[in-house]
């Protein structure tokens, strides 16, 4: 394991990078124009946050890598995002459910990070929180609207929840990196974020007439980098293609 702070920053940055890229895949093909633009805005917010996290990660590492080098020159096993964000977009409902589950975790994490002992982390969290608060508002409304909508939309949302719920647990698993962050008051213990997450999730799912899966089985291996799903490699081959083929290409 490399330096814990570097690891932690890569986790934050890789979550927003991978999800931002996934969401950007909707550009031009979303079900309606308004959602298309909203999804593109969300993707841009996330990529903007990625730049902040990964530039800081590069500075902490001290080997001259910036956000671009970290985003485009690492291979799958060096990525530290949770498995949830690399899952395929699926239909619009699945994308919204994935976004909602992530936003809900993300908001809790950023609120805690605002009180970080690390000034730059606290500043990034404060800036990101404004964006993420809006993301969560939007996805909450959409999950409720579609869940409590027609039979078809309800069934699709329930299917999306059943499919994605096994990826929720990983966001709250604590490991050595987290323990090191807690010891220096840099970041919260992810496990401590779970009760607030659960309470809000239950409220929203109840409004959405959706049933929370009973099994707490959780896929793991994303944030540790030990076992990403096959989807990430395919995504990276698209995302990194240009920098791999033409290193340091500029406009």
């Amino acid at each position: 394991m490399s330096e814990p702070l570097f690891e932690f920053l890569c986790r934050m940055g890789d979550n927003t990078l991978v999800l931002g890229h996934r969401v950007s895949e909707w550009c031009g093909v979303a079900p309606v124009l308004e959602e298309d633009i909203a999804l593109a805005n969300t993707a841009l917010d996330l990529i903007g946050q990625t730049t902040l996290w990964l530039n800081l990660a590069g500075a902490v590492e001290g080997k001259g890598r910036d956000a671009d080098a970290l985003a485009f020159r690492r291979d799958v096993w060096e990525f530290r995002n949770v498995l949830l964000v690399e899952q395929l977009n699926g239909d619009f409902g699945q994308t919204m459910m994935r976004q909602f589950l992530f936003d809900l975790w993300h908001k809790g994490m950023l609120i805690a990070l605002q009180g970080s002992s690390h000034d730059q982390i606290a500043a990034i969290a404060e800036k990101s929180l404004k964006e993420v608060t809006y993301h969560l508002e939007r996805t909450t409304d959409t999950v409720i609207g579609l869940g409590d909508g027609t039979d078809e939309s309800h069934n699709r949302m329930q299917k999306a929840l059943d499919r994605l719920y096994p990826f929720v647990g990983e966001m709250f698993v604590s490991d050595d990196v987290d323990a090191a962050m807690v010891a220096e008051s840099i970041a919260p213990d992810p496990a401590d974020l779970r009760p607030v997450f659960d309470a809000r999730l239950d409220e929203v799912l109840s409004d959405a007439t959706l049933v929370r899966p009973t099994s707490d089985f959780a896929h793991k291996g994303g944030k540790s980098g030990q076992r990403h799903s096959e989807h990430l490699g395919h995504m990276l081959s698209q995302m990194q293609w240009l920098q791999r083929a033409y290193p340091d290409a500029t406009w």
Partner: peptide, 20 residues
């Protein structure tokens, strides 16, 4: 103008389409 299911989502869509 834009399309939206209800007033609340119309405001959200307006925020995304017109005030970025």
């Amino acid at each position: 103008s834009l399309h939206a299911a209800d007033a609340e989502s119309a405001i959200k869509n307006a925020r995304d389409v017109y005030t970025r």
